Amino acid sequence: MGRPSGEPPDPDEPDRSEWQRDTEPIPRTPRPDEGPGFGDGPAFGDGPAFGDGPAYAESAGYGRDETAYVPPDISEEDLAGLRTDAAGMPIGPRRVLPLEDEPSTLVARYLFPTERYRGEWKRHWIHLTTPLLIGTAATFALGYLSGFLARQQVSGLTTVAVIVWLAIMGWVAWQVGDWYFDRFILTNKRVMVVNGIITRKVGMMPLLRVTDMKYEQSPLGRALNYGTFVLESAGQDQALREIKHLPNPNELYLRVVEEMYEPQAVEARLGKDAEDAKADDGA
């Protein structure tokens, strides 16, 4: 409350005029639209950014004489030895087997023009183990039996033994021929098995009907790289269910699955192979 006019000043009250003269006014910060402010200098983003490399180093005043960092060139072969499987063993990159261009004359007759051929495979040579062992055992048995019958001077039984041996070897040759004409075939629409020398048997299953597919490998199969394929088709009986002694089962399994679920990848790889072949011919 102010003092009434005409009343003498209180001697104990400080002189306000002196207090007001000793204090200085607090400068007021102008608004951006009133005068020069923070934004009147060079824009914050106009200078070199942190990720600009040499520009940032030059503006900061260091690294002027050093060359820019170049990352090392690491190829796929260099990384192959660093990859490990679940057991901690090193594994290499997947090697895709080349796709055959044309089917053999044995297979071409069973394909129609609109389907695309993907490959054919004979069964693994382990498929011939039984007939080859029988033929080898029969040969040793004939040699021993011939010497024994010659000492006994029984020529008629020796002739019979030779006839039996020839029959066994004929059966072995038949099994080898049947193995040669037995083919597993893959196209973009179906899987097929063709076998038989005189009586030909052709079994097939459309890829669209395959509901489950797996392959099994015994310890010997893992060592010799063969396996047994099992195909399922909606719980129905089918011509193809179990196909034994197929070579390189892992790559064959990936190829069939890729054809079922990623046909565009197969087409892309085929197109790339065709371009590479043309480039090699042009060179």
Results as ranks from 00 to 15, higher is better:
112 F>V: 12
123 R>Q: 13
112 F>R: 14
108 A>R: 12
128 L>S: 07
103 P>H: 04
120 E>T: 14
113 P>H: 03
127 H>L: 01
118 R>Q: 04
120 E>R: 14
108 A>H: 13
106 L>K: 01
107 V>N: 11
120 E>A: 13
125 W>M: 03
113 P>I: 01
104 S>G: 08
130 T>I: 10
103 P>N: 05
132 L>M: 09
118 R>M: 02
111 L>V: 00
116 R>H: 09
111 L>F: 04
126 I>E: 15
120 E>D: 14
134 I>Q: 04
110 Y>K: 12
131 P>Y: 01
108 A>F: 08
112 F>N: 12
116 R>G: 04
105 T>V: 10
130 T>P: 04
130 T>L: 09
105 T>Q: 11
120 E>C: 09
128 L>N: 12
106 L>F: 00
110 Y>W: 12
115 E>Q: 05
121 W>K: 00
113 P>Y: 02
131 P>K: 06
133 L>A: 14
118 R>E: 04
124 H>Q: 06
109 R>C: 12
128 L>I: 03
126 I>H: 15
125 W>C: 01
133 L>P: 09
110 Y>P: 09
125 W>K: 08
131 P>I: 02
122 K>C: 13
132 L>Q: 04
112 F>T: 13
135 G>V: 00
116 R>D: 10
132 L>F: 05
127 H>N: 04
109 R>S: 14
122 K>H: 15
110 Y>I: 12
114 T>P: 01
135 G>H: 01
125 W>H: 05
123 R>S: 08
116 R>V: 02
120 E>M: 06
135 G>E: 02
113 P>V: 00
114 T>E: 11
112 F>K: 13
133 L>T: 11
121 W>S: 05
126 I>S: 15
134 I>H: 04
121 W>C: 01
106 L>G: 05
120 E>Y: 11
114 T>Q: 04
130 T>V: 13
125 W>G: 03
127 H>Y: 04
123 R>P: 13
102 E>L: 12
103 P>A: 05
134 I>L: 07
122 K>D: 14
127 H>C: 01
107 V>P: 06
106 L>Q: 05
134 I>D: 01
135 G>R: 02
106 L>R: 02
105 T>H: 11
122 K>F: 11
110 Y>H: 15
130 T>A: 10
122 K>S: 13
